[in-house]
């Protein structure tokens, strides 16, 4: 019963997404004013050739700060889990 319900959900969602995907246009984004501004002015404002780096670290710096925090938290979580698991390990952290 559960399996049939899952397959039904997947099929409905797949058909729905496929209808949208056929309708989208590829290769010509509509609203690109912000990216045109970045590509035109990013090189002079941040003195950087790589526009992606400019967006990541300068225009959207808060985003990268949150991303770094997520990575840090995940690594702390992994470390805590394994430290609880491996008790006999002579850990030099203590």
């Amino acid at each position: 019963m559960r399996k049939e319900l899952s397959i039904l959900i997947i099929v409905i969602l797949g058909v729905f997404l496929a209808l949208i995907a056929v309708d989208l246009t590829f290769g010509a984004p509509d609203n690109s004013a912000m990216d045109d501004y970045f590509i035109r002015n990013g090189q002079e404002q941040a003195a950087t050739n790589n526009i992606v780096t400019t967006v990541v670290f300068d225009y959207r710096g808060f985003d990268t700060l949150g991303e770094s925090t997520v990575l840090f938290t995940a690594v702390i979580g992994v470390a805590l889990m394994y430290r609880k698991l491996v008790k006999g390990d002579a850990d030099e952290n203590e």
Binding site: S32, D35, V52, V56, D63, T64, V70, L71
Partner: peptide, 19 residues
Amino acid sequence: MVMATPQALTLTSIVIGVA
């Protein structure tokens, strides 16, 4: 050039996926 912001967001997404 292709749009830069989606690429930056994808960079964020990849790192969070790894984490």
